[in-house]
């Protein structure tokens, strides 16, 4: 069973790399019973959305073929 701290680490890493099947299921199991980590997941996804919006607002052209992970999540 993941601790909340470990869960936040996986949530963060999920924005940077593809999590393994094992990691994803551990995270799902944890989040099913932990509203704090569900909220944290939403918060970190919002941060990603906000940095992309910041770049759009400032008309920064896409610089890389980026952020490919978890594109289809939710």
């Amino acid at each position: 069973m993941l601790s909340c701290r470990q869960a936040t680490e996986l949530i963060s890493q999920g924005l940077d790399r593809a999590l393994t099947m094992r990691e994803r299921s551990a995270l799902l199991v944890h989040q099913a019973i932990c509203k704090g980590c569900r909220a944290t997941d939403k918060h970190l996804q919002f941060l990603r959305q906000a940095t992309l919006a910041w770049r759009n607002n400032n008309q920064v052209p896409p610089l890389n073929d980026e952020h490919s992970h978890r594109k289809n999540k939710d």
Binding site: R38, T40, K42, H43, Q49
Partner: peptide, 21 residues
Amino acid sequence: FDGNEHWNDYPVAWSDPGASL
């Protein structure tokens, strides 16, 4: 986090964060 690495205080969902943008 506490000694077991669980939240001391649960983070709570933000209301309508998209509107902030």
